[in-house]
């Protein structure tokens, strides 16, 4: 399979900085004066237990949550982030009435861009890349959970955005499928600025160039852990396993 680098070219991939972020959920202060950075062209993983506010932080970057002052979200090239992010969630968010192919083409249609032969061919190729060649006419109901998440990955790639935000995208599938999907995503999204939010230390350590732990109320973000070796790292990698053990211990302590 081919690595699918952003067609815009590596120069167009910015880093993203979140500065002085503050967010409340109802009356609870989730975090305050929070600084966080996504390095350009690599995977940053944000690890934390559920409810700590990591998804909220991702939504803040995605422009899906309202910015509370004095929160700043900016790209290193000074251009606005809107229109340059792709979003992948824990649910596949496939539309049940559309075929796999039409689901991949959803963004094109939503923006009112013409669905040209080239676009269709590209969507087919991306479905091929995620291992679903020949299944583009099937509706989501006819696909397994893992296959649906593959379609969602193809849809994310079709958006061809330099910044990709993923909110526990592989947590709803079984362990084996999860590892295959992680490998696939690592290969296909290489070269983009990726934020992966997860509660699975192994996932973060396999995929992240930098791994941050988010914890506490209000939440703070720890310093970057930098696992050795290029992602995706093997499941049995001693360094990965050692770091995983240390992380789990620090969580349960």
């Amino acid at each position: 399979m081919i690595e699918s680098r952003p067609r815009g070219g590596a120069a167009a991939v910015p880093s993203v900085a979140v500065g002085n972020a503050r967010l409340r959920f109802g009356d609870t202060l989730l975090f305050e004066a929070l600084d966080f950075e996504l390095a350009a062209g690599s995977w940053t993983c944000l690890l934390g237990s559920s409810g700590v506010g990591k998804s909220s932080l991702l939504r803040l970057v995605a422009g899906l949550a309202r910015h509370e002052p004095p929160t700043r979200v900016s790209a290193s090239d000074g251009q606005p982030l809107a229109g340059r992010i792709a979003y992948m969630a824990q649910q596949d968010l496939l539309l049940p009435w559309l075929t796999a192919l039409d689901n991949v083409l959803l963004g094109t249609r939503l923006r009112g861009q013409p669905v040209t032969i080239n676009k269709v061919a590209e969507a087919r190729r991306l479905l091929d890349d995620v291992g679903l060649g020949g299944r583009d006419g099937l509706r989501p109901a006819a696909l397994s959970g893992g296959m649906r998440q593959r379609v969602a990955l193809a849809r994310t790639l079709m958006e061809d955005r330099p910044v990709v935000l993923m909110d526990e995208p592989f947590s709803a599938v079984d362990a084996l499928t999860r590892i295959r999907l992680q490998d696939l995503a690592a290969r296909l999204l290489a070269g983009r600025t990726v934020l992966l939010v997860t509660h699975d230390p192994l996932e973060a350590l396999r995929l992240g160039s930098r791994v941050h732990v988010m914890s506490g109320f209000p939440a703070t973000i720890g310093p970057a852990l930098i696992p050795p070796g290029p992602p995706p790292r093997p499941v049995g990698d001693p360094a990965v396993l050692e770091l995983q053990a240390a992380l789990l211990q620090s969580f349960t302590a």
Binding site: A89, Q91, L110
Partner: peptide
């Protein structure tokens, strides 16, 4: 309408008209 679909559509820069036609209407059928 599934709020997840609306979030996705927002990151895809969908206008309100197309959002209605391509997501909200079929979802309500």
């Amino acid at each position: 309408t599934d709020p997840g679909w609306l979030d996705l559509a927002r990151t895809m820069d969908a206008g309100p008209g197309r959002l209605l036609l391509l997501i909200r209407l079929p979802a309500a059928l």
